[in-house]
């Protein structure tokens, strides 16, 4: 379902991803772990299409279509979702306006009917309830004044509403205490389904206790240097990255 082939990407002429290969089947959850500077966040931004990241070689296919040629909004319509490590605060844009605009843009691009205000409100309320997000949060501007936990729950809410085929979670555990982490992980787990794949990018194994991956990969120096089952994460937790990264180098 997701096929990343020989992906090379650079920022300001510095190559960060150096031939990354990754395949994720429908409904699978893969984790990418790696030390700081391995290129984890770059991978998520390259997939989502952020400015400033230049793909010099390779492809990333979602259901057989290379998404790397698309604008970020087209990728979202095609079914990609990136849960940000640092969700952006947008003063002056209300959550409800934001969700309605996003959802209808995606529905329109997918050839579905747009939702009216009432339909949206209903959907939003039911999703909020599932994720334990208060209505009051929906009256605020996007991420403004949200706690770290609220911001991450808000990412999961957006994912739940946009119903992507492929979700990338970029260091979703960063800045969360254990209770907040559980809430977010429960939200993600509730969204797991046969047709939806996940790429969980994380530095620590902790998150993977709550979001159980089918496969774990180690990213170092811009490449996947080792792949294995969920046990690989435990091994990394115990021994650190030094051995594996050292082997690769």
């Amino acid at each position: 379902m997701i096929k990343i082939k020989n992906l090379h990407a650079e920022i300001d002429g510095t190559e960060i991803l150096k031939g990354l290969d990754l395949e994720i089947g429908a409904g699978e959850v893969h984790a990418v772990m790696g030390p700081n500077g391995a290129g984890k966040s770059t991978l998520s931004y390259v997939l989502a299409g952020r400015d400033g990241y230049e793909v010099t070689e390779g492809s990333a296919e979602l259901d057989g279509v290379n998404i790397l040629d698309m604008d970020p909004d087209e990728r979202a319509a095609a079914g990609l979702f990136l849960a940000f490590q640092y969700p952006v605060e947008i003063p002056g844009v209300q959550m409800t306006t934001f969700l309605k605009t996003a959802l209808n843009a995606v529905r329109k691009a997918r050839g579905e009917d747009e939702l009216d205000a009432i339909g949206l409100l209903k959907l939003m309320k039911s999703k909020c309830k599932e994720l334990g997000i208060s209505d009051e949060m929906m009256k605020r501007a996007v991420n403004v004044g949200f706690s770290g936990g609220e911001k991450k729950r808000n990412e999961v809410l957006q994912m739940a509403m946009l119903e992507p085929k492929f979700a990338v979670l970029d260091e979703t555990d960063s800045g969360l205490d254990i209770d907040a982490l559980k809430v977010v992980a429960d939200g993600v787990n509730a969204l797991r389904s046969e047709g939806r794949s996940f790429l969980v990018i994380t530095h620590y194994q902790r998150l993977l206790d709550y979001i159980k991956p089918d496969h774990v990969h180690v990213l170092a120096k811009g490449k996947i240097v080792k792949s294995g089952s969920a046990d690989l994460a435990l091994e990394l937790e115990k021994n650190g990255y030094a051995d594996i990264v050292g082997e690769a180098a």
Partner: peptide, 21 residues
């Protein structure tokens, strides 16, 4: 970028941000 990554086309995202400003 955040707005675009949620499926909002660039022109619309820009309008949303300017309006908010």
């Amino acid at each position: 970028f955040y707005l675009q990554s949620r499926g909002i086309p660039e022109a619309e995202a820009r309008a949303l941000l300017i309006k908010a400003f």
